[in-house]
Design a protein around this nucleic acid. Structure first.
Lengths: 234, 234
DNA sequence: CGGCCGCTTGATGCAGATCAAGCCGTGTGG
DNA sequence: CCACACGGCTTGATCTGCATCAAGCGGCCG
């Protein structure tokens, strides 16, 4: 294994406020791994042996129901933690984590968590702050599902993805990993058919451009109007 | 103010593992308050000056949308913390907290949180464990809203309330605080009309008994079958 | 005693799921 | 290097669960 170096992680906001020596100590206990596209990083219900930091790539976190329906909980971007079940008092992973593209992660054994929590207070505080954000996000999503039409939910989902992983191109802002109609449906509690129809309609109005596993938002501002339900349907 | 005593809080699971002296230290910095039914304990968007422990009563936590629709995030039972925005890196409360009945709370100024977090590690760990549970609950709710019919969601909601605040009576298990059709609708993303129709139907089948702001689950086991969608409609 | 709040119940409408059929681009194996 | 199979997408037709609209009831509280 190539030796790991604190330069991998210094500068990530989750490590903000940590001394260089402490960063070295953390990196020293990590192993790195590459995960090929479409492979699992961890699996729902399984023993939460490790927690992870995504260094490169994009990860989809999916909860599967007993009936076999999948619901996407969130997408993880580089610099974020995942699989921190132990920090939240759980012994198993609550969902599947799937590499949306080839990924690189750092992994620590879960039993190190208590030591890290005791010795690296800013890391701990930063982690819980991000857990707080996730809790807010989850509640926001419950509110959206309770009060908004499908059209608004899909618009909100695209805007969230754009904010999180948008890359500027000459056509607009591209969501920077492969994402299918089905994936968007699983984020918004609808079907790929409805997503397809709406994207087609929006493409007709010049709001977005999209293709096979690819979505570019051309007019974020007008899409936001749709998301907020402040637009009449043509 | 009557003097507060650690016997108020010793024995609550959130304080498990704490020394008596530390409990005294925490209680010593709290003030207690009574909140009359239907009054706000804290308000969405306002400065999160305090966090609270519910000693007695029941609290409804509600997010209001800009359009004025309300979504119930959760119900709080005695022994639970609420308003811990600061612990999650937020400066304002994310929702309204409304006393469902007359309540008694302990309140601590939010600026004490960092001290508590530094000095009372088991309290901190217990708190984050319960935050973890809330995050799981929120995700479960997103999954339910994405995959289940209204009928199943309402059944699940009633079973959750029964588990959390059920009181055995001769007729069945009573949800132990006033809860209206509208309240249940706000928990499940539906309308009071639909809730009313379903409760009437279930009453006809002997599954529940209900009246003005009152629901008793007569046959939890059969209601669970409904919740899991394993029952054909008569 | 009267008004209001919580509840019930019928009638109607519609957003979006489901059913169905076919297209296109891409990667693969012959 | 081509064919073809498969995965992702589109688009029409139909169906339906639940919201919405509408009206009225009853009991609790002031």
């Amino acid at each position: 294994m190539a030796s790991l170096d604190r330069s991998l992680i210094a500068g990530l906001s989750i490590f903000e406020g940590m001394a260089a020596a402490d960063l070295d100590r953390m990196v020293g206990q990590a192993r790195s791994a590459r995960i090929a596209k479409d492979h699992l990083i961890f699996e729902q219900e399984q023993d939460a042996h490790s927690f992870f930091l995504l260094l490169d790539g994009h990860v989809r976190v999916v909860r599967s129901t007993p009936e076999g329906q999948d619901v996407t909980v969130r997408y993880i971007s580089p610099g974020e933690l995942l699989g921190i079940a132990h920090a939240l008092g759980r012994a198993t992973y609550p969902a599947n984590a799937i590499a949306a593209v080839d990924c690189v992660v750092l992994a620590w054994p879960s039993q190190l968590w208590p030591t890290f929590a005791a010795n690296f207070p800013s890391f701990t505080a930063n982690t819980y702050k991000s857990v707080g954000t996730r809790l807010q996000d989850a509640h926001t999503r419950v509110v959206e599902m309770s009060t908004e039409q499908v059209e608004q939910r899909i618009a909100h989902a695209l805007l969230k993805l754009v904010k999180q992983s948008g890359r500027k191109t000459e056509e607009g802002i591209l969501i920077d990993f492969p994402i299918s109609r089905q994936d968007i449906a699983e984020m918004t509690g609808t079907t790929l058919h409805t997503v397809s129809r709406l994207l087609s309609a929006w493409e007709g109005q010049g709001l977005v451009k999209s293709g096979r596993q690819k979505v570019t938002v051309v007019e974020p501002h007008r899409l936001l109007l749709v998301a907020e339900g402040r637009v009449e349907k043509g």
